[in-house]
Design a protein around this nucleic acid. Structure first.
Length: 218
DNA sequence: CACCAGGCAAGTA
DNA sequence: TACTTGCATGGT
């Protein structure tokens, strides 16, 4: 069986177990990119509190975030943790959108995948996962997002070497699946969902929907 | 009490 | 290139 078939089996097993996830959970593009920064190494429930604070202050817009002192911004996003660091990162990202695209996110998102990704990666505080998340869920272009759950699930089930790096793991998905944004969005969301429920402990749990892969795939 | 969460950059060797 | 460390709140 080839890799593409294996990945689609995983996708369908997860979809059957958990149902559609309908990510990204944001009402606007600005809310999406803010959430992408805030969720770095942080539980989504804490991000939600920070997002709620910003929305309550009517600050979930490029303009609202633009003229915001760092110490005030960090106060709003405190529940998301690393608040001083993330306030600077959010400001860096907003400055980037203002300086290069006149504050118009849609202008950034109208570029091609490589241009969007490279631009985002030039912003201090935006790394590969955050950039790729914004391309997939913000621009809605087909770039597969890799995270710790993706790495954990594939290594735990013996599907990839544990020394694999981000770009290699990303290539596994990109080279073997059709480049469809809807598929990539749902697949990544399902991987995160599965990672939260299972595969946390070393031994594979008996209820894991991917357990049937352990013997069949090498 | 300890441990983890939808990372990233800077420092060190 | 390959480690290590700081960043920080809130849930389990």
């Amino acid at each position: 069986m080839n890799t593409g078939d294996t990945l689609l089996i995983i996708y369908n097993l997860l979809l059957s177990s958990f149902g559609k996830q309908n990510w990204w959970p944001a009402e606007t593009k600005v809310e999406m990119i803010v959430g992408a920064v805030l969720t770095q190494n942080t539980s989504w429930s804490n991000v939600e509190k920070a997002i709620r604070n910003l929305r309550a202050g009517d600050l979930l817009s490029i303009e609202g975030l633009s003229n915001m002192p760092l110490n005030v911004l960090s106060d709003y996003i405190k529940p998301a943790g690393y608040f001083n660091l993330k306030a600077r990162r959010l400001k860096n990202l907003i400055d980037f959108v203002n300086d290069r695209y006149a504050g118009n996110l849609d202008e950034l998102f109208s570029l091609d995948i490589t241009a969007i990704r490279e631009g985002l990666l030039s912003v201090n505080g935006i790394g590969r996962e955050t950039a790729d998340s914004i391309v997939l869920y913000g621009a809605e272009l087909p770039l597969f997002v890799i995270d710790t759950y993706t790495y954990r699930i594939l290594t735990r089930h013996g599907l990839v070497d544990e020394n694999i790096d981000y770009s290699e793991l990303q290539a596994i998905f990109m080279d073997n699946l059709p480049h469809e944004a809807e598929l990539f969005k749902e697949f990544h969301a399902l991987i995160v969902k599965a990672g939260k429920e299972f595969c946390k402990k070393k031994p594979l749990c008996i209820e894991c929907p991917l357990r049937i892969l352990d013997k069949e795939i090498s």
